[in-house]
Every structure is written in structure tokens, then in C-alpha cells.
Amino acid sequence: MTTRIAKQKTPGDLLKAVQEKTKVNLNVCYQCKKCSIGCPVADQAESPPSEIIRRLQLGAGDELLQTGLIWTCLSCETCYARCPNQINFAAVVDALKSLAVEKGVADPQGDAPLFNRLFLNAVESYGRAYDLQVIALYKLGTGSLKQDVDKFPAMLKKGKMAILPPSGADKGRIRRIFKKAAQNKGTKA
């Protein structure tokens, strides 16, 4: 297939940002495509993993942040496990995701950034995950309240989901971690 690479004012900016975030050397990729063959969601993506690497090498810009794969990726890490040159492509996808969020590029289907934010907010408040709150707020936020509503009565009855928020975590410790991590995010080590 033909992939158009948008002309950048400064080509390679995205590649540089990804390499800075991950310390992964994408230049060692020789397009053996083992990552794409093993990827369980490659068939649904406009560009499979090996092609994303190639696009980054060729100086792709922010249009790459809208590519489906970064939001369909399952973090199964099959790409990384099978890469003959140990390219951590799973980390590359994480970096592309956080760059997409920083640059405000919306998730085309589903809303992983919202889910992640809600999940981490609950962890920051309670020190542990609180499924029921995260799921309810996510469904409110994405207008998908009706989806899965059939499952909750049985899950709650069977004790397959906690109703009350978690207790027992060292909350002071967790808040310090979040505060410090937010401060560190802006600075380059």
C-alpha cells in the first residue's frame, strides 16, 4: 500500500521525540516484519508495527499519532519479544500515545486516554484501583452507559466486582509519587 508522509518543517522531530522518551534505537530495524506478523491487531491497522518504524525513519509527522495502531495496541509485547534486534516497539507505542495526549490528538475510537486518566486518578485518591468508579465514570464520559449494563448485577452478586472503594493502602506514599512524577515529567533527565 502507499503511505503518504507529510512534509515537516523539521523532518524527524517525531522520531527524535520517540527516541528521547524510550531510548530505543529504531535505526537497527531491517524490516524483517516479525513484529507485524506476530501483532494480533495488525490486520485492523492502517500501518502495522514495521511500517510505523519505517514511517518514523522517513520523517513522519503528527499524522502518525492519528494512526489506528497506537490505540488498538494491546501491549501484548509480541513485537518486542520476537524482534531479532530487541527493538522495544511496545515502548515506542507507549511514547506515541503519550505524545498524542500531550499534543491533544483525539483517540478515533474508544477513549484510552480518558480511561487511563480515570484509573490513575482513583489510584492517586485511594492508593489502589477502584474498578466500579473508573468504569462508571468512563461510561459516563464516553456516553456508553448501556454497554455491559447487563453484566453488573451478576458480577456484583457474585462478588466479582467490589462495591466499596479500596482501603488499607499507604495513601501518603502514593500521593508523593504522583506529585514527584508530575514534577519530573517536565524535566529531561
Binding site: 507507549d94 500515545k97 503519550s98 490513575l120 489510584v123 492508593g127 502514593i174 512524577a181
Partner: peptide, 25 residues
Amino acid sequence: KGWTCCGASAAHQTDRKLAASLASA
């Protein structure tokens, strides 16, 4: 005693340093 969330997939997709810190606690 007092264990906290490991960060799960939400943390590593957001910030690698946060993810490593949450698990390390």
C-alpha cells in the same frame, strides 16, 4: 502492609517513570 497499586497498564501508557515508581513502592 500498606501496599499500593502497581500502576497497571494505565501508568506505563502514560509515563514510564511513574510506572516504575509505583511498582517500586
